[in-house]
Write a protein that binds this DNA or RNA. Structure first.
Lengths: 336, 336
DNA sequence: CAGCACGCATGAATCGTTTCATTATTCGCA
DNA sequence: TGCGAATAATGAAACGATTCATGCGTGCTG
């Protein structure tokens, strides 16, 4: 495998000069530079990133660890982060913890071994201890879709999930529903809990008792779990008239279950999702949903990370950005 | 930052021994091993992957470069690949070329610099020259959803797109349609061309002329482009009765456009998509689609790559695996 | 004309591991 | 008792880049 030494030899210069041609071309005389560059091209020389990083210290990798790659919401976050990072010359490596704490720890260790420039993470571990491996290596991270823990608070970008839940529930209550089924996921997830809290708040505002919230808990936050939850909520009596799901995948699953059972949406049951993924608008019945600014979150998170690791990282201040969600009303919640 | 040297010093052993504790624990005495391990834990020592890779030569990274992360089909491919790779102790880094040749080249160069173990790629560049940077570094790659070029043929996993197109068109012809609109994407993409060829074959089988295929070309293969194409095909005269889209995202977009125009599906226009993504079944009208074994493709591709780079890579033989697609009939193509 | 600054190139030291030939120690067995 | 084998640990040489103090020659300035 041809290295910098071979290039130097064939170009008749020292390795230091070749390195300069690559990294600080302006410090090398025109004539030398082109000669070296042509040798590089001729030999198909490709610099070894591991050697570079070992000596220079800094990696060009930024990691993004999401809860569920199957969820278009996270795909949108990833694309926002990727765009911002690439403008700064970084590559984003996107990984999927699939909501498993052990997967998450595996990945974070790997990131630490790679000495990545920084990590954007939507933690699966509610305790936040899995991030210790990053803290130990002084690898900065930004929490995405989750505000910091108690003790130390680094940067984070999130959306006000309580407000989102409230928006959804207010909308349903305003349409005359006196009880709301909340199809949540694993209760360890703060997003799931916060959205539920928003529902409770909205019910209280309307003078309804806490019992007006009926919990149906899905195993995971995906379409299959939603179908399952949908079947279960049809068994409730009295049959609910309003259903709010912790995300759109669940809502689409619920919708399929209701469809299969011949239950009309929105006539018999009004349905609201969360995230406003692209497919929500294209659903069997266009889905009312709480929109999160996913791409912006990804972009912001990446920018904050780069500020923290960039040239003037000294003057970096941790920020906890909280964005506001927005209700998008479509057919699934509109009584005809 | 604590390195192997510091661990060795505090444990009272040589660096070689520490390395052995990490990489070949069975070769070091029980007592020494636990002592070293406890020092590692106490100091939060994390090995430097770049140093490891520089010396040992082999990376633990496998790259996956897809055409469009926004397409659930590729997400499924990624999850199949990831699962297989992780069982072999590799991490997959998923990147998105977004069908841009220059993005693709950037990423492939980066992979080459990182000396990744191998690359799974759905090439955006139809010439295949962008893969030269990998060939130059002897980095093996597996083509996903695309058979090899002309000169050299490495491994590939693909689905018979001609057969898929034929399945879709046969289905429409059997339902009595005498002409079919094909909503394709960028004609450089072999997938787009092959599916079209399948349509032509099915029309020929049925004794229909080639003019029975009407082309509508979308800019990209996503929902927005589909909406656009949908609006355009409504301007055709006579108005078509059957539409086949190069993928489900386009089909969902077309569906939205038809919906917006008040055109009934399947009554006025029958619609067939491709990929059978999860959201096809949940669409406004459940979408008939050609199913591809996406997860299996990802898994197979990763396995083939690992065979090529694994312990007995010497006996590796390149294979071009072609899988068969399957038609899933749903409401969007069933005349009531 | 001495002195200085500047532009360019050099080459050795360094990053943190792995690997391997070598040494030291113990053990079993004739 | 002596010897070969097996077992543990050592320490130095890579791996392939970056970086930096150094040297050399040129042109400018006072």
């Amino acid at each position: 495998m041809v290295g910098i030494k071979e290039v130097a030899r064939q170009a008749g210069v020292s390795v230091g000069t070749v390195s300069n041609v690559i990294n600080r071309p302006e410090t090398v005389a025109e004539e030398t530079r082109t000669r070296v560059q042509s040798v590089i091209a001729r030999l198909h020389y490709v610099r070894s990133e591991s050697a570079r990083q070992l000596r220079a210290g800094a990696s060009r990798l930024m990691a993004l660890l999401v809860l569920d790659m199957g969820n278009p919401f996270f795909v949108a976050v990833a694309s926002g982060a990727e765009r911002a990072a690439r403008q700064a010359g970084l590559v984003v490596m996107v990984c999927n913890s699939a909501q498993s704490v052990s997967e998450e720890m595996d990945y974070l260790s790997l990131f630490a071994e790679h000495r990545v420039r920084g990590v954007l993470v939507t933690p699966a571990d509610p305790t936040g201890r899995s991030l210790d491996v990053l803290r130990g290596q002084n690898i900065p991270f930004v929490l995405v879709d989750r505000v910091g823990g108690l003790d130390d608070t680094g940067c984070s970008v999130s959306v006000d999930d309580v407000a989102g839940g409230r928006l959804a529930a207010r909308h349903l209550v305003a349409a005359g529903h006196r009880a709301v089924v909340y199809v949540g996921g694993p209760p360890e997830l703060p997003q799931v809990r916060d959205r539920r809290a928003g529902v409770l708040a909205a019910l209280a505002e309307a003078g309804l008792p806490a019992e007006a919230l009926i919990d149906v808990t899905a195993e995971r936050l995906d379409v299959a779990a939603g179908r399952d939850a949908g079947a279960r909520l049809l068994g409730l009596s009295p049959r609910p008239t309003a259903v709010f799901c912790a995300n759109d995948l669940l809502a689409l699953g619920v919708l399929q279950a209701l469809f299969a059972a011949g239950v009309g949406v929105p006539d018999e049951i009004a349905l609201v999702g969360y995230d406003d993924i692209e497919f929500a608008a294209a659903a069997a019945v266009p889905l009312t949903s709480v929109r999160q600014p996913a791409v912006a979150m990804g972009r912001l998170a990446a920018e904050m990370l780069m500020d923290e690791t960039g040239p003037d990282a000294g003057r970096h201040e941790h920020r906890q950005v909280v964005l506001q969600p927005e209700l998008v009303v479509r057919g699934s919640s509109l009584r005809r």
